[in-house]
Write a protein that binds this DNA or RNA. Structure first.
Lengths: 335, 335
DNA sequence: CTGAAAGCGCTAACAG
DNA sequence: CTGTTAGCGCTTTCAG
């Protein structure tokens, strides 16, 4: 009554026989309706419908090498930062007539390999988000299938990234305008390309704007990481703090509150990403908005373009602009 | 330099030739290492590694009909209710040596069909969450591939569901103990099986416990839906409210606050699911906890069991127990 | 233990 | 417009 484990389903041959035509004709009736007699096509459709025929896309892929699917690989489906990215990618895929699949790696390189190994052949392209793999492993994959890397630069592999430098600069300017003279960076994962860029961006801006900059960390890019960072920061306070991302900023605020402090009265805090949490939290978080949606759209479009044989698949990273969103977690310094 | 759109990758034949053996031997060396001379196998592995050979799971699937992947289809990856379900399913899949793929349908039946059409042949089984398809369409799919339906009962298709009846009963008991004599149900989507069960559970419990029960709605099962429900509720207030799910409960609280009311002083509210939002929100939400994680684990395990030819794939729904989690949004009624 | 041959379901190239 | 003939990359008989 339920599902047949090995139930052989209707094939193109069954339909061909039932309709009294050659298999290739059936195939054509589905893939190039124009190239087949209207009546014949109609009959074939009818027979197919009656027999409950469903094309097997994977078998088709074996000869066409196209599956009309792309995969987005991410470390953690639960991380709100990915929501808009996924939405964007799905939108772009849908518009192009593709289906987007998602695979989670649980932050594990081993799992990422396993996923890739299996999913690779079922899709026409891959968007790699927060990959744990080495640059060379990624290059390896990119040799086999179109790959776009998100928020990381891997030589030889096309990528699309957030403009971390300018984003951090805006954060620094904002703090400067509010009268802050020192700022502490709460560092995220050491190995992270984004962390490197954000720290560099803040440092460079600090030099120009005469803002004293120091850093604590690295910490995991999570709420708990932020709490931990608060403890370290407390040993040598600054009037302002910029976190690697929103989650850390939120954790930091929680940590400050736990120590009896208040945000922004005692310390101004700026996050990064503008994930959906940043406006839910109290006080609402001032943050550098990453172009999450466009990141997803662009990545998906580009991977499809490559898959369709785009010529100038330059290896230059596409960099997308950020925007500072001022909310309640930052305030002018008291004289 | 980048990815080859049509770059033919190393096949089993290349390896066979390079290693000086028959293709079938290479195949065996990978799938049944025991059945091939140890040295030969070693040599083959070496050659394969050197050539960067990667098996094509889809081609393999064509003859074996197994891909070692399962798919979980859901309406909205962004919905926190699914987080634990996905986690559970992924865990069960991983433990069984399978890879889990996720596909989003954006609440659209059309998209759901498209996804299924394409993904169906690339996986060994499907877990259908919040499906928009008709019972018969689902039965159709289940005829072709192992399917488990989550939180919905479709005759002839195995499913695993939350014990909505008992869950609602517990909610009612809790409210009764607090002295409430009337409760309003904020209805979710009309077509939803879960909504039907929850409403029925509350009504039945109400009769036994002498709790006057009424309902408003239906509304979309979202925060905004809850806000809307609050407006309708306000026209004829009750001292307690039970929402179809947490999101609606949260929206309801927001609505009440906007009208100048306070929770739980003016109205006690109970949610359903215990999604991760329920403890973040203020006041923290009293809610009926769905067995989210187990739902995912059980669904994945069962779909795999069927796929491996489980015999007694009974069509009875597996029902998993709920648990009432009391937080701050409910309080005793003032005399 | 290993090779040869056939075939999974579908498309593509070539004749008619 | 349609039939025939080869394969796509891999596994699986069936011999040896």
């Amino acid at each position: 009554m339920a599902a047949p484990p090995g139930g052989r389903s209707t094939t193109i041959y069954d339909v061909a026989k039932a309709a009294g035509v050659a298999p290739s004709t059936v195939s054509r009736a589905f893939s190039r309706p124009g190239r087949v007699n209207a009546e014949t096509a109609e009959r074939i459709r009818a027979v197919a419908a009656e027999l409950g025929y469903r094309a097997n896309p994977q078998a088709r892929a074996l000869s066409t090498t196209r599956t009309s699917m792309i995969a987005v690989i991410l470390a953690d489906v639960t991380n709100p930062v990915f929501f808009e990215v996924v939405r964007g990618a799905e939108l772009a895929a849908y518009e192009a007539g593709y289906t987007m699949l998602l695979a989670e790696t649980q932050e594990s390189a081993e799992r990422e390999r396993a996923v890739l190994e299996r999913a690779l052949s079922t899709v026409d392209g891959i968007v790699l988000t927060s990959s744990r793999m080495s640059d060379s492993a990624i290059r390896q994959i990119a040799k086999v299938k179109p790959v776009i890397v998100l928020n990381r630069v891997v030589t030889g592999v096309p990528s699309v990234v957030t403009d971390n430098l300018r984003g951090m600069r805006r954060a620094a300017e904002h703090l400067g305008e509010l009268g802050h003279e020192q700022v502490c960076y709460l560092a995220g994962p050491e190995a992270s390309w984004a962390d490197g860029m954000r720290w560099r961006g803040l440092r460079e801006a600090g030099m120009e704007l005469e803002l004293r900059v120091r850093r604590v960390g690295p910490y995991p890019p999570t709420v708990n990481g932020g709490v931990a960072a608060a403890a370290e920061w407390a040993r040598q306070r600054t009037s302002a703090v910029v976190a690697y991302n929103d989650q850390m900023a939120i954790g930091f605020m929680r940590g400050v509150r736990a120590m009896g402090g208040q945000v922004p009265r005692d310390v101004s805090v700026v996050g990064f990403d503008n994930s959906n949490l940043s406006e839910i939290v109290t006080p609402a978080l001032t943050t550098v908005a990453s172009p999450l949606h466009s990141l997803g759209v662009t990545a998906a479009r580009n991977v499809l373009a490559i898959s369709r044989g785009a010529q100038s698949r330059s290896t230059e990273a596409v960099v997308l602009p950020t925007k500072l969103v001022v909310r309640e977690s930052t305030s002018a310094i008291e004289a």
